[in-house]
Design a protein around this nucleic acid. Structure first.
Lengths: 130, 130
DNA sequence: CTATGTGTACTATTCCACATAGTACAGCTA
DNA sequence: TAGCTGTACTATGTGGAATAGTACACATAG
């Protein structure tokens, strides 16, 4: 289910956060559902429990999961909505990224091709899911 | 001319690399032109000379500047072209970024607005420059 | 030639984020 | 009671980033 790239410069706990967020968006993890325990996931991935907890704390702070001591961690009901708004806040970053490409002489058409390609890929998955 | 954000998680040497690349793209630094010396820039920015050199070594390796011992560092003739190709190689990253936004439920229209906005901003600068 | 400024190459040190190791405590539940 | 859960804490090791200081070779103005 999970896949960790130990050679990546991206911290392990961030990789876990991103993958769980992705699982929520793809429907692999649904609101209310329980996610693997800190210890079981640490064993499955051969990673220190502290690293898993750091990822879970981050997800808890973002409102993606809720941690219940003694029971486990569960996907929040409004996790998908939270993620949508979180991503919407990054549109300004996207604009700045595209500005850099435009400044470097990348044609507008090339950017539009990226947009088309991205939404074409997502549509396939969306049709299958619903 | 330069501006360093000491609080940024982005390394100082990377900030310098990005700013010089940006100066090349905006025409503030033209091919053949000499850039500040390692020592003078380190004094101007109150930064260790080793950090400046690390940035210059990176720019040299990328083919943006050429370092001439005893004389100084100069912008390469084909630096703009090198930068354009370098940015073109990052279009796949852009596609992946947009895919994440699309998966999170961001409307295609919102992305297209970012593209329009980015190219509108660049056009203004382009008209003024040439 | 001399002095100064240039890029470059080292070593040593400090700092901090990341990850690990180990222990401990409190709450839930079969 | 036993075993699972989340959580908190200290200690340690690692690696990148940045600093400090020194040294060498080259170019140029005086």
């Amino acid at each position: 289910m999970f896949h960790i790239d130990a050679l990546s410069r991206k911290p392990i706990y961030e990789q876990i956060v991103e993958q769980i967020e992705r699982f929520v968006l793809t429907g692999l993890l649904k609101p209310g559902e329980q996610i693997p325990s800190v210890r079981s996931l640490s064993i499955e991935l051969s990673i220190n429990p502290n690293t898993i907890q750091k990822a879970y704390s981050e997800l808890d702070a973002r409102g993606i999961i809720r941690s219940v001591p003694g029971k486990g961690c569960f996907i929040c009901e409004n996790a998908p909505a939270v993620l949508t708004e979180h991503k919407r806040g990054k549109l300004s970053d996207l604009t700045r990224t595209i500005e850099e490409l435009a400044l470097a002489g990348i044609e507008k058409k090339e950017i539009e091709e990226c947009v088309e390609k991205a939404y074409a890929n997502i549509l396939r998955k969306g049709e299958a899911g619903e």
